[in-house]
Design a protein around this nucleic acid. Structure first.
Lengths: 194, 194
DNA sequence: CTGATCCTTTTACAAATGTTAAAAATTATC
DNA sequence: GATAATTTTTAACATTTGTAAAAGGATCAG
């Protein structure tokens, strides 16, 4: 079956996690939608309740919120990454966080209620999403370990190594808050690295 | 159906997350086992590959590992909490972490391979475990937020507020490393709190 | 009870990070 | 292209946290 390229490439990625039947794939395609968000625009605003799983098909995005009025980046999503505000999607409460595109970005959205409806018919799909969640869980555990036990400098160097593209597209302000430090501190780390 | 009390109370907790059919419950009971670990003893050692979901039915436990030779606590598990070394269970790689009882503790173990076998017959069960994972995911996201954006003092006060029992049963050394700070630093925070 | 061990606090000093403000560099807008 | 707005760097100083070492407490085995 022929899907649009953006969705096709995400589904190809899904297959590396858990392969699903063609019927399940078609059903998933039936509820998936593409949404393009241009650089710096918000896909979702603070205060909305998150009811959709999003994945980045092309581009780069972040989750951020306002902590005492200052913009704080919680998460960067690269190609194929799931980007959800879990504390809202999984609890039904409004989210304090927003999703913003950092480049022109194509998101694939999958409405949670429709997806859960498909789970009854296609257990394969539920398994796929359980495994996606497992993988995200591992990523969060590792990130927490890094926040807990590595210095800011180590975290910065690791980030640059893992995602060199980030530096070219994201302001240092956002990178600093993602690392849990101030811009000034990040600037010092960068200059001592030279 | 009558299960042993420890398993019964865990299953009662499961029902608050997602209720499953009596058949599924019986099947789950069939693969669950109880294991008691006395204070300070290890349920699992470093280096083993984690193949079992554990839950704390009674007592208190932690996940820890050795970072450059020093004991570092990653996680505390209270009653009904899932305690898994996700980076091993979900990837099949050996874990660098160990599980230790901090009081005499009753764990309920559920072998992952048997559980996944049941998922095919009882989609309900897969849903339950997906939702358990969702809840843990939310907990980790919140904990990360706290590590990223709160001071050590705020984190300590929050921990004491959430789990007053922890102080009575756990050495400050473990609490300090859980908070991502040194014992000395924790001691300072405590004395300034007086 | 006693010595040994481990845990906790304290002290003194070092290193890292935060705060505020200003300057420099970059980017956006008209 | 000029100006305004934003981002990044630098500086000076304050605060927090880390390190190492010592002392005081608590706990445990014999």
């Amino acid at each position: 079956m022929e899907f649009p390229l953006t969705i096709q490439s995400l589904f190809t990625y899904f297959k590396t996690i858990h392969s699903i039947s063609p019927e399940a794939e078609r059903a998933l395609y039936g509820i998936s939608f593409e949404i393009e968000t241009s650089k710096n625009k918000h896909l979702h605003e603070i205060g909305q309740t998150c009811k959709t799983y999003y994945f980045v098909s092309e581009g780069l995005a972040r989750i951020f919120y306002l902590k005492d009025g200052t913009d704080v980046t919680e998460y960067f999503a690269h190609q194929n990454d799931m980007i959800i505000r879990a504390e809202s999607l999984f609890t039904g409460r409004p989210s304090k966080k927003a999703i913003q595109a950092l480049e022109n970005t194509v998101f694939i959205g999958i409405p949670a209620s429709k997806l859960e409806g498909l789970f009854d018919t296609y257990p394969d799909l539920e398994r796929l999403f359980r495994k996606i969640l497992e993988a995200s869980f591992v990523a969060y555990v590792n990130r927490m370990e890094s926040l807990q036990f590595h210095t800011a400098e180590e975290r910065y160097n690791q980030l640059v190594k893992d995602y060199p593209r980030l530096l070219e597209n994201v302001s240092l302000k956002h990178i600093a808050s993602y690392l849990g430090i101030t811009q000034v501190s990040l600037s010092r780390i960068r200059s001592s690295n030279r």
